[in-house]
Each structure stands twice: as structure tokens, then as C-alpha cells.
């Protein structure tokens, strides 16, 4: 399983053809207390860079862009009752959705953890 990161502060953890997507710890810190997460529908066809989810915090609503194209296979059911999981475990139980990748080569343009950490340091 390999995890990749985007400049928009999403992560995608890839296991074979399936990717799990969430927002990074840096992102949740920036957003503050999350009160609602709007998730994509299962079966939705999404293209890399689409806004497919919205994370609502006390402060503002922020788009989440899918790092890859494919078909949404699952939206995290735990977030309906516990949106704060995105704050407490952004890179674990607070994942947003799972996507069946249609083009694995899209991962090539993403950052690995070290590159993402270096990127965040520049912000």
C-alpha cells in the first residue's frame, strides 16, 4: 500500500486498483472544527481534479478534489454521525471515500510523504 499526496492537501492510499482518499492532518488543522462532510455517491464516476466532496467546518466550507479518476465505491459511513473523525484521525478513520482507479498513471504526478512534508514546510 502506497500513500500519495496532492498540493491541495488530499491523500490517497492505493492498494491494487482501489484508492482511499482523505484530507491531510495539515488540512484539518487549517479548517478547524469539522461539522459536516458532504460525500460523493457510491457509483459516481469522477475525474481527477473534480470537486467531489465538501468539508464543512465552523469557519467555512472547503472543496475536496479527487486526486485520481475512477468510480466511487464507498463513502465513509462513519462521518454522518462523527464528522469530527476528520479532525481526530484525518489520515485514518476519518477517510472520505474509496475510488476504483481508472488510470493508475495519474498517481505519477502526486507527491510521496517526504515531498509533501517538504511542501507543507514552505507554506
Amino acid at each position: 500500500m502506497t500513500t500519495y499526496f496532492t498540493k491541495d492537501h488530499e491523500w490517497i492510499s492505493v492498494d491494487g486498483p482501489m484508492g482511499t482518499v482523505g484530507i491531510t492532518d495539515y488540512a484539518q488543522q487549517q479548517l478547524g472544527d469539522i461539522t459536516f462532510v458532504e460525500l460523493p455517491g457510491e457509483g459516481d464516476s469522477v475525474s481527477k481534479g473534480d470537486s467531489v466532496s465538501v468539508v464543512d467546518s465552523v469557519k467555512a466550507a472547503s472543496d475536496v478534489y479527487t486526486p485520481v479518476s475512477g468510480e466511487v465505491r464507498e463513502a465513509n459511513p462513519a462521518l454522518a454521525d462523527e464528522p469530527e473523525l476528520v479532525n481526530t484521525k484525518p489520515e485514518g478513520d476519518g477517510w472520505l471515500f474509496k475510488v476504483l482507479l481508472s488510470d493508475a498513471s495519474e498517481l505519477d504526478g502526486l507527491m510521496d510523504e517526504a515531498a509533501y512534508k517538504a511542501y507543507v514546510e514552505t507554506l
Partner: peptide, 8 residues
Amino acid sequence: MSDNEAEI
């Protein structure tokens, strides 16, 4: 994600 704070 994106954030839309106004810049002054």
C-alpha cells in the same frame, strides 16, 4: 481542499 479567505 481549498480555502477562500479574502486577501487584503
